[in-house]
């Protein structure tokens, strides 16, 4: 890949950290979470199932291998922070948090239901483990910059991880945040872009071209790595090597597939909106057999 003048782009090398059984464990967790996701979206008849499936593998590595937190005290001051800026992918986050033990899986049944605890966008008011309410795109990274600044000021060791959608990067506020993060030398801030190449009305390159995308982040002063966002070794390797450079924020450009894991949803725009009917759900669960 052409890396431009800054030369900040670091290509991934395969991780030796994960053993084959480790990968198997992560795979089966991801499959379990995908099962929960399709079930939640089907029961609720809610949109965004494809958006959720896209980020499951990233969340699994984050929550089972990377993030430091205390389940007994999820608001402990030195915890790592995670912000799902693309809040519409919330069913993946809810299922991951439940699977990881932040709250009971029964709560997942209340997603989208009258009197339930889980809304159609990530909300920190009703369950533990969610840092901020998102759903309006383009907010998460600025909040992450604030958390990272506070961490520096308070001399804490926590890291801040922010997960953005690629379409979300249309928002000008994302680039304001991006500029400020490198200006303030926030090497405790890590952004992951879920680069699935689809947004709400079509393909990213047709709706609003982001290219040269990696180079944009480089030129905004970030240290950039590109990975396959469904390859556990690559995800783990990138996330264990942050910060990629000292005094710089880190960007992981994760190439993903919207709807990943359910063949008929993969890379299909319509699954931004549709929810699986009974037959489609059965098919999905079959494909996601544990």
């Amino acid at each position: 890949m052409d890396i431009g003048a800054q030369g900040d782009l670091i290509m991934n090398s395969d991780s030796e950290n994960l053993t084959a059984p480790d990968v198997q464990t992560l795979e089966s967790r991801a499959r379990q979470i995908r099962r929960l996701v399709v079930q939640m979206n089907a029961a609720a008849r809610s949109s965004h199932v494809g958006s959720a499936l896209s980020i499951v593998d990233l969340l699994v590595v984050l929550y089972f291998r990377i993030l430091r937190f205390d389940l007994e005290n999820p608001r402990a001051g030195d915890r790592d922070r995670f912000i799902l800026s693309k809040g519409h992918g919330c069913t993946a986050l809810y299922a991951t948090l439940a699977e990881r033990g932040f709250f009971s899986k029964d709560i997942l049944d209340t997603y989208y239901q009258d009197g339930g605890l889980l809304a159609g966008h990530a909300d920190n008011h009703n369950v533990p483990g969610i840092e901020v309410a998102t759903g309006s795109l383009g907010h998460g990274l600025s909040i992450g910059v604030g958390m990272a600044l506070a961490g520096k000021h308070d001399q804490k060791n926590y890291r801040v991880f922010v997960l953005l959608g690629d379409g979300e990067c249309d928002e000008g506020s994302v680039w304001e945040a991006t500029m400020s993060a490198s200006h303030f030398k926030l090497d405790n801030l890590i952004t992951i872009v879920d680069f699935n190449k689809l947004q709400a009305m079509g393909r990213v390159e047709e709706v609003m071209n982001l290219e040269p995308f990696a180079e944009k982040w480089c030129s905004f002063g970030w240290s950039v790595r590109e990975i396959d966002g469904h390859d556990f070794r690559q995800i783990e390797d990138a996330l264990t090597k942050v910060p990629f450079e000292s005094a710089k924020p880190s960007l992981i450009l994760a190439h993903t597939v919207k709807g990943k894991g359910v063949s008929y949803m993969e890379d299909q725009l319509s699954w931004h909106y549709k929810s699986p009917n009974e037959r489609e759900l059965a098919l999905a669960l079959e494909e996601l057999e544990l």
Binding site: S46, G87, Q113, A119, H121, D123, T134, G135
Partner: peptide, 9 residues
């Protein structure tokens, strides 16, 4: 109108 999508909507 966007009831279950939550307060942001």
């Amino acid at each position: 109108a966007y009831g279950p999508l939550g307060a942001t909507h």
